[in-house]
Simulated assay, not measured.
Amino acid sequence: MTRQQATQATQQTQEIQETPTTGGSSSPPRPAPTPASRRPRGAQSAAWRAFLRRTSTRVFLPLLIMFVLVAVIGPFFVGDPVATAHPKLLPPSAEHPFGTDMLGRDYLARVVYGGQISLLVGFSVAVLCMTFGLIVGGLAGYHGGWIDTVMVKIAEFFQVLPGLVLALVAAALLGSNVLIITAILAITMWPGVGRIVRAEAMRISKLGYVESQKAAGFHGIRILVSDVIPNAMPPVLVATTMTVGRAILIESGLAYIGVGDPGNPSWGSLLNDAQSYMRDSWWLAFLPGACIFLVVLAVNMLGDALNDAFNPTIGRVK
């Protein structure tokens, strides 16, 4: 074989090796992972550690957990909240740590059971707001275009609804039910979370690791669920945490003016019952009011701690 023939054979072999195999439709090659296409998991882990190291977290997270545990397991250790076998308006004592109310009911049991309703409404509204916000805001921010326009108009419609007025009208027409109040509060409060999700989805969808997955042909829903939403969660959690406190305050305010489920009293309805006895029986108003104050303070302080830990413009605690 001459030198020219050997050179031609080598070129043909290289062309055969470089030619892609075609056994049907060929898919585009997926880009190799680059530093710009990696998910920022390390930064989020450092932010969570900074959150747990904050003084406000160490103080108020155990406080909030304590209230939740008391509301969940407390009914197994307290008496009947509707039993009237005790003397009326007894002050706090060893036998009745929270005293008794105007009908002779053990007030500790009343406060514990009332905490179930208040906390259930607060956390249920927060979960519903986060769910609606992630769906609507995520789709709007990721896809843009007409989807974004429609989703924004839907959020604006629900945002202008007056929650308190709507709750009063619903209570007059449908009755004072915990489920109805929870649904109304969630319907009128979720657009705030949705706007935050939309802004984060618009920002994250333009990052390198998302663009690389779009170029690789991954489905938009998969990218949204696996990458966009998880990396948008820190500011969403901050907004959701604030929603818990707002929902508890609104529900307590509604219950205080009589818009509540009489069969399931909350801290707000206990305040309503106590307003005629505040001069002589101070504990009837002080104890549920203190519970509302401490829980709302705890969730707001935890929300501030989350914001400080995940906000890159604020120095993190060492």
Rank of each mutant, 00 (worst) to 15 (best):
P91G: 06
V125G: 01
D148G: 11
T149K: 01
V121P: 13
G99Y: 04
V150Y: 05
L103K: 00
L139T: 12
G104S: 02
I135R: 03
T131A: 14
P97R: 00
M102D: 09
R105G: 03
D101S: 01
L134H: 09
F123H: 11
H143Y: 15
F98R: 00
A94I: 10
G138I: 10
D106S: 08
I147H: 02
V150C: 06
L90R: 02
V125E: 00
D148M: 07
E95C: 01
C129R: 06
L134Q: 05
P92S: 04
G115R: 09
V125R: 01
I154C: 06
V111W: 04
A109D: 07
G144D: 13
V111G: 05
L139D: 04
T131I: 14
W146M: 11
G133D: 06
G114Y: 12
L128V: 15
A109M: 04
V127C: 12
Q116M: 10
P97K: 00
L103N: 05
L134P: 09
I135L: 14
Y113L: 09
A155M: 15
Y107S: 02
V112W: 02
Y113I: 05
F132G: 02
C129V: 14
P97I: 02
H96P: 03
I117M: 12
I147Q: 07
G99P: 02
V121Y: 07
A109W: 04
G122F: 13
V152Y: 06
V127M: 14
V136A: 11
V125S: 03
T100E: 06
R105Q: 05
S93A: 10
G114C: 12
H143K: 15
S118N: 09
S124L: 13
G122V: 13
A126R: 08
G133A: 11
G141F: 11
G138S: 13
A140I: 14
L139S: 10
S124M: 12
G115S: 09
Y142P: 08
V150D: 00
F132C: 11
V111H: 06
L119D: 13
I154F: 13
T149M: 05
E156K: 01
V127P: 07
Y113C: 05
Y107I: 04
V150H: 00
D101F: 06
Y107E: 05
G144P: 14
G138W: 10
H143C: 10
M151C: 15
S118G: 11
V127L: 15
G137D: 07
C129T: 15
L128F: 15
L119W: 13
V152Q: 13
Y142H: 14
T131R: 05
L139R: 08
L120A: 14
M102N: 11
G114H: 12
D148S: 14
T100S: 02
L108M: 11
E156R: 01
L103A: 04
V125N: 00
V111D: 06
G122L: 10
S118W: 11
G141Q: 12
T131E: 02
L134M: 15
G133F: 11
